[in-house]
Simulated assay, not measured.
Amino acid sequence: MNMEALKIAGELMIFGMGGVFLVLFLLFLISKLLLKIFPAK
């Protein structure tokens, strides 16, 4: 087992997870903003 490859894989996984959470957070903020602009009836 190559430790360098394992380290790179771990970093990629962490960045991938971070990206997913970032996108979800942005969607959450955008939906909040849209509800402020167009309040639900």
Rank of each mutant, 00 (worst) to 15 (best):
L34C: 06
G18S: 13
L26R: 02
F38D: 02
A5R: 13
N2K: 06
L35Y: 01
L34Q: 05
F15R: 13
I8D: 06
A9D: 05
L29Q: 12
K41D: 13
L12R: 14
V23Q: 03
L27Y: 08
F38G: 00
L24H: 00
I30M: 07
P39T: 05
G10T: 10
S31H: 07
K32Y: 06
L22T: 14
F25W: 03
F38E: 02
I14Q: 12
F21H: 05
A9I: 04
G16Q: 01
L29S: 08
K36S: 10
M3D: 09
G19A: 15
F38M: 09
M1H: 08
I14G: 06
K36Q: 07
G19Y: 03
M1Q: 12
I30Y: 03
L34W: 09
P39F: 05
L33I: 15
L33H: 14
V23G: 02
A5F: 08
L24E: 04
F21Y: 11
F25N: 04
S31Y: 06
V20R: 03
G16H: 01
F15V: 15
L12K: 09
P39L: 08
L24N: 01
L33A: 15
I14D: 12
E4M: 08
F38C: 05
F21L: 10
F38L: 11
F21I: 11
V23I: 12
G19N: 12
F25R: 01
E11V: 04
E11P: 00
G18Q: 07
A9M: 08
K7N: 14
G18A: 11
G16D: 13
V20Y: 11
L24A: 03
K32D: 06
F15P: 00
M3T: 13
M1F: 13
I30Q: 03
K7W: 05
G19C: 14
S31Q: 04
M17Q: 04
F15D: 15
M17S: 13
F25M: 02
F21N: 07
I30H: 00
L29W: 10
E4W: 02
V23C: 00
P39H: 10
F21G: 15
G18H: 00
L34E: 06
F15A: 15
I37W: 09
L26P: 00
M17F: 12
L22P: 00
F28I: 07
K7G: 08
F28M: 11
V23P: 00
N2H: 14
M17G: 03
L35F: 06
G19E: 09
F15N: 15
G10M: 06
